[in-house]
Design a protein around this nucleic acid. Sequence first.
DNA 1: TTTCTTGCAAAACATTTGCAAATCG
DNA 2: CGATTTGCAAATGTTTTGCAAGAAA
Lengths: 133, 133
Amino acid sequence: MRALNLTEPRRAVLEVVRQAHDHPTAAEIMERLAARGQRYAYATIYNSLRYLTEHGLIRELNLGNGISRYDGRLESHQHIVCVRCGAIAETLVDVPPEIARRMEGETGYRVNQVSLHVTGLCPACQAQESVIR
Amino acid sequence: MRALNLTEPRRAVLEVVRQAHDHPTAAEIMERLAARGQRYAYATIYNSLRYLTEHGLIRELNLGNGISRYDGRLESHQHIVCVRCGAIAETLVDVPPEIARRMEGETGYRVNQVSLHVTGLCPACQAQESVIR
DNA sequence: TTTCTTGCAAAACATTTGCAAATCG
DNA sequence: CGATTTGCAAATGTTTTGCAAGAAA
């Protein structure tokens, strides 16, 4: 169970996630596969996404609204979501490692993963805001 | 629409959230109200929670699994969730403010809110892990 | 054969919505 | 009255599950 078993649907899902530069949801991934003529059941899409996530080939993002999005970029980076239109931007700004260490000291937990959950207004929505008022 | 209109269900929801020291979900809040003899429709619970959140009386937490939890503590603090049992701990460790500024510079967004999304293993689950292997 | 994987449909679950009735100012 | 709020039930949307069939080891 250690070796990577990239079945056809898993490989297809992986390709779609890697090629996307937005951060597609499971439903969007299914659509894009369908557009290529590859039709899989929801169960298969979700199974593949879990498999790929657990094997570290993709990242699952939970950006606040309860819908999982998937990211093929593995280098450490963070996301910022526009509260108005939902646009997602990426940034290389990262969390200093001593934060995890201090949290461990305070709580007794062993920290696994630290990610930032940032919301704001994207440039386009900032422009609109100033028009409105 | 500026003044605070704390109707009976809103006040009741607020009390439950403030008294809780876990971070209850909407369903848990409804149960606890029912246990006190106060029965409200889901719509009312959710409306009240949104109202209280928008008016800054409580915080809505999205700790990764898509279920909203609510917190009556308003002082800035962060949460860490156990990946194994879901236990939530609080910590005062916070995100340095220059992180938000650097993100703004990188993305052009105007940052609203930065919160940490930390996962790990709670002390109890750490103990069990070492027993298992 | 045993194990893993897929497909389908149904189920589960959290949350939202439409609309009528009640309440408040 | 006019605006807001509540209750109920149904709808929505995402994700999971049960189970049978298929593929792989």
